[in-house]
Simulated scan of single mutants.
Amino acid sequence: MTQDGRRTGRDETEEERADRMWVELIQEVRVAQTGVQILFGFLLTVVFQQKYAQLGPADQSIYIGTVVVGACATGALIGPVSLHRLVAGRRVKPQAVRLASRMTSVGLIMLLVTMASSVLLILRVATRDGYVPYLVAAVVVWYLVCWYGLPLWARRRHPADASDRQERR
């Protein structure tokens, strides 16, 4: 039961809800982790390619920034696993779920930046054309629509009832 003795619409206690939300969060993180780890692994190999030495200072700066943000995204998206390991059994699952959710959100934003800057670097090297920033902007808009626009639209279209909103606080 919740703190005031009510049960949620799913008829689950706070602990049961935290358990369910944890499992859902970890499933979501698995998808993002795989993508960020593959991208980060690819980024780490770029510096060892012969063509890297031919990059101009701007492209090398974009690369370095991309690697740093990619490393941070990897850390944020793997963070929930470490969090769970370190607090397991301490009866703080609802708080851990909230913190892991925040880490995941930050990791997704960093992943967006990593992907956008990777696309920018690749297109700059591949084409050297002036339309590259417009292509990158279009990719970023697409990510924003898929990752935030459509989910927020669905959330607004199907709002949670008052008891769900109260329980999330």
Rank of each mutant, 00 (worst) to 15 (best):
Y63D: 06
I109N: 07
L77W: 03
I26R: 10
A116L: 05
R156W: 12
R168S: 13
L123G: 00
Q54V: 03
G56M: 08
W142D: 05
S163C: 06
F48Q: 11
R10D: 14
T104A: 10
V47Q: 14
G130S: 13
R98G: 05
L25D: 04
A100N: 03
A126R: 07
I38C: 04
T74W: 06
K93T: 08
V106Q: 02
Q166N: 06
A32P: 04
R30I: 08
A58P: 00
T127D: 03
P94F: 05
R7G: 02
P133A: 02
Q27P: 03
S117L: 14
G130C: 01
D129C: 01
V29P: 01
V81Y: 13
L77D: 02
S163K: 11
D129W: 07
Y148Q: 11
D161T: 05
L120P: 02
L120H: 11
K51I: 11
G65T: 11
T45S: 12
E167D: 13
M103A: 00
G56V: 01
R168H: 10
T45D: 07
L112C: 12
C146Q: 13
R168M: 15
V69K: 09
W153K: 11
M110S: 12
R155D: 10
R124N: 14
V119N: 07
V113L: 15
H158K: 12
C72H: 04
R168F: 13
R156F: 08
Y143S: 03
T34Y: 10
T114F: 05
L120Q: 10
Y63N: 05
V139S: 07
Y143K: 03
V139Q: 09
D129M: 06
I64G: 00
P159W: 04
P133N: 09
R124F: 05
L112A: 14
Y148P: 01
L135E: 07
A154H: 11
